[in-house]
Simulated scan of single mutants.
Amino acid sequence: MKTKVVIVSPCMGAYGGIEAFVLAIAAAVRREPDMEVRICLKRVQGFALQPSLKAMLQGENVIYTDRGADRDLIETIRWSDAVHLQNAPPDVVFFAKLFRKPLAMTIHNYMTRGFTPHRLLWRLAARMADERWYNSQFVWDTWEPGVKRTGSRKVPTVSKLPEGWSPPAERRGFVFLSRWIANKGVDTLVDAYARAKLDREKWPLVLMGDGPLRKLIEYAIKKRELTGIRVLGFVDEATKTEQIKNARWIVVPPNTKEDFGLTAVEARNLGVPCIITRDGGLPEAAGKQALICEPNNPEALARLLEHAAAMDESEYAGRATRTREELATELEPIEFYAQSYRRLAHHER
């Protein structure tokens, strides 16, 4: 008899890190002959299905549910032998416990300070899980600031990581990949690139991603007559991998208390070191070989771009090799999830 697992994730309708994570786990678990998995996307307030998510879900049999006592959500939980919930929405926790289903949570987002009824309810919901897997030490410490609970641990969240390697001497410039929204740093990076004293032909900047700030950023690039910048917008996985692996550095400069930093992990798996801001869990994701400055500081980021450009070939090649080697010791293998589902379904600890 197969072990039946439902992966439940709140969803705004766009393709992001959590959606990539859920799809990667589901694909890995389906390769196990003794397991069956369903994906349940729980529409949150303001949900609007975006073309990016629609494209990535092509061929997936996804169950969409609403908040509260949604019939499809209830029936899917009853069908399962184990529930893997993303974050800690209390309604899903309630039904999992009502039907006595083993419950694991991956907690992606940090808990803000202060006590409100909403935060208290989510903290209580997290306590009711059989296991809690926090995606970074930063996130874990905001939920469990003192003594850590039994059943809690750090498990960095990764999607299907891109594969490949370009010889360091053949790489050029910087690359950025994120949603173009406030505090993700695309505006800070463009400002820093404008300030940096660089040979822009030798050190181009490729911007990938899309979002509400795109028109504003494109206008700023044009108004400041910045050369060396290419805007690619939303790209497919193959293009993303090609652009990252052929760059010297990936730049990840948020000012938003980043929970972890999947983009940094993807780049490191390709042997591309990171230039980052000291923001939330991002330094954990970027590793020891990263260059770091404080968030929301274009001048400091400009100096890092200059430092990266001036780095000699041997030092850079060493960082590129080490950042990938070190990453392999920091992540759980994707098989962790199938093994954990079996253990939970059989009530083993």
Results as ranks from 00 to 15, higher is better:
329 T>D: 11
211 G>R: 01
57 L>I: 08
36 E>N: 09
170 E>D: 14
90 P>Q: 15
147 V>F: 07
232 L>C: 09
2 K>V: 07
277 T>E: 07
341 Y>R: 08
64 Y>V: 04
11 C>M: 05
142 T>S: 08
134 Y>A: 05
281 G>R: 02
211 G>A: 08
299 E>M: 07
231 V>Y: 11
107 I>V: 15
186 V>H: 00
309 A>C: 05
340 S>K: 12
303 R>L: 12
284 E>S: 08
30 R>Y: 09
225 E>N: 09
34 D>H: 10
98 L>D: 11
190 V>K: 00
237 E>S: 10
222 K>Q: 13
64 Y>T: 13
294 E>A: 12
99 F>N: 09
160 K>G: 03
27 A>F: 02
260 F>Q: 11
27 A>D: 14
154 K>H: 00
156 P>Q: 08
225 E>H: 10
67 R>Q: 15
99 F>H: 13
336 F>M: 11
307 H>M: 04
55 A>M: 06
267 A>I: 10
243 Q>A: 15
218 E>R: 13
103 L>H: 14
182 A>V: 10
168 P>W: 01
27 A>K: 14
319 R>Q: 12
252 V>Y: 13
106 T>I: 14
333 P>G: 05
313 E>D: 08
222 K>F: 02
1 M>K: 10
187 D>A: 06
61 N>R: 12
157 T>R: 03
305 L>T: 06
276 I>G: 02
338 A>F: 03
134 Y>D: 02
25 I>C: 02
159 S>M: 01
228 G>H: 02
159 S>D: 03
40 C>Y: 12
223 K>H: 10
179 R>G: 07
74 I>V: 10
83 V>T: 11
170 E>C: 03
337 Y>R: 05
2 K>D: 13
311 M>S: 06
116 T>D: 12
173 G>D: 11
